[in-house]
Nucleic acid binder design. Structure first.
Lengths: 219, 219
DNA sequence: TAGGCTATACTTAGCTA
DNA sequence: GTAGCTAAGTATAGCCT
């Protein structure tokens, strides 16, 4: 809202985006506070920052908690029924997340493969010097930078895993090799069958293990 | 903020206060939406209106629910004292998965961007050398298309989650069907990374933790 | 009570240091 | 990355219908 009308879309520039995030977050907090003050209403806001795993809450995490609790205790809220047993709920959530994770990993792999192919097929890149249009040159440069970032992240990610579990990392790298040789092929090593459990039982910790088995059957 | 500088205090006049509330609430929602769009962050807002017993949530109650759940599942919140028991354990697991998920989503985004650039710049007739105004225009177009695809995917992912809350069992079975039909989507080369969970369990049995550990390996 | 209007107050994008 | 700065966009208080 200044100097230029910004179009409502993802800000690709990293620094700009972070700056904007910070500024607007601040402005938002101020507005929320003003609203609560002016109208004596109870309000809170939760934001999951782009980088942090921790959510930020306003006016403060401590102040937000009661609001959230109140909100969650709405009889109308869909989760109320399930929240009778938090355990079952959480377990379901685990399943969902795992599934999502698997899918995203698949996506990542595909994208990586495509990217790799493009890189290989595109080859040299010597033509860059001759590009006459500034925009194009900038784009090419950006592409390279981004690539570096992603590759680096993937590398460090792999290293991390290697430290964490040696055998697993070994398998992963093997698979990566295989994939590199057969980029079209996809391999599934994981059989995480998920099964939704009935949530009707009362809050009992007796059944959790059984439920666990249902959710994550051992192969 | 107009015609007169309003002092930050409870607005005693009833009509004025309600008008202000309505206007500012609207503005706030807009701002939240902008923030989420511009910076790709997950956010929600909860306001207990002056009159209504029902809270209002943004972007919508349905969309806010997952955010709230996620927030509530923070180990750091008041429920963190339960970290020792199985619930806390599951919560931790959820947190881990969420973190991974977020990172993967970021990777996906970056990969998409890289891929886009490679496709556009490399895909044309003669490679980079021929990049011109038309290519720039093409890039813009492709960028939009890609964006739509990605956004759509994210949206469907979100809708997915919402639905999952409402009809967990139903959705799950459908998903499994889908997955069964497209087994290629389900790829996991990396399931790995172990992490030690807190061993300070006091009251519960010695074995459940072990079992849990076996059943729900943290990554 | 709800909308629409407009002068003003406020927010913030792009820069600079 | 932080911290101002300023111009240019936005939000909105008080009115009016």
């Amino acid at each position: 809202m200044a100097r230029k009308k910004v179009k409502l879309a993802w800000i690709s520039n990293d620094a700009t985006r972070r700056a904007t995030y910070k500024k607007r977050k601040h402005g938002l907090l101020k507005k929320v506070r003003e609203l609560t003050t002016l109208c004596h209403v109870t309000a809170c806001m939760i934001v999951y920052g782009p980088e942090e795993a921790q959510p930020e809450a306003w006016p403060s995490a401590a102040e937000a908690a009661p609001v959230i609790r109140r909100f969650k205790s709405m009889p109308d809220m869909d989760q109320c029924r399930k929240m009778v047993n938090q355990e079952g709920f959480l377990r379901q959530r685990v399943g969902k997340l795992q599934e999502q994770l698997r899918r995203l990993m698949g996506d990542n792999r595909e994208l990586e493969a495509s990217l790799l192919m493009h890189e290989v097929l595109g080859g040299g890149g010597g033509g860059l010097v001759d590009v006459g249009v500034d925009d194009a040159r900038r784009l090419a440069w950006m592409a390279e930078v981004r690539l570096k970032v992603v590759e680096e992240r993937i590398r460090s990610e792999a290293a991390h895993r290697q430290l964490a579990v040696k055998e697993e990392a070994e398998m992963a790298s093997k698979e990566e090799e295989v994939l590199r040789q057969n980029p079209g092929e996809e391999v599934d090593l994981f059989h995480g069958g998920e099964e939704i459990m009935p949530i009707s039982y009362a809050e009992s910790s007796m059944t959790w293990l059984q439920d666990a088995y249902n959710l994550f059957p051992l192969n």
